[in-house]
């Protein structure tokens, strides 16, 4: 019976962890995308680059 309680808890935790992991992957992709956009902004608008560069730094 104790094993049963444990295995049920494990199942729930696994599903919760999978949701968390997916959220982590989302964060990674968003960061990559943002960095690319910043570097493009800087290339295209070197004058205005001071403010986006600040944005990029705040990410690191």
């Amino acid at each position: 019976f104790l094993e049963d309680v444990k295995s049920q808890a494990r199942e729930q935790l696994q599903a919760s962890e999978s949701r968390y992991q997916a959220q982590r992957r989302v964060t990674q992709v968003l960061q990559t995308e943002l960095l690319q956009l910043y570097s493009r902004l800087e290339m295209e608008n070197p004058a205005a680059s001071s403010s986006p560069a600040g944005g990029a730094e705040s990410l690191t």
Partner: peptide
């Protein structure tokens, strides 16, 4: 998961 009483919780996570 095998435990039916977790189905609602897990379905919510999914």
């Amino acid at each position: 998961p095998p435990h039916s009483d977790s189905h609602a919780l897990v379905a919510g996570y999914r």
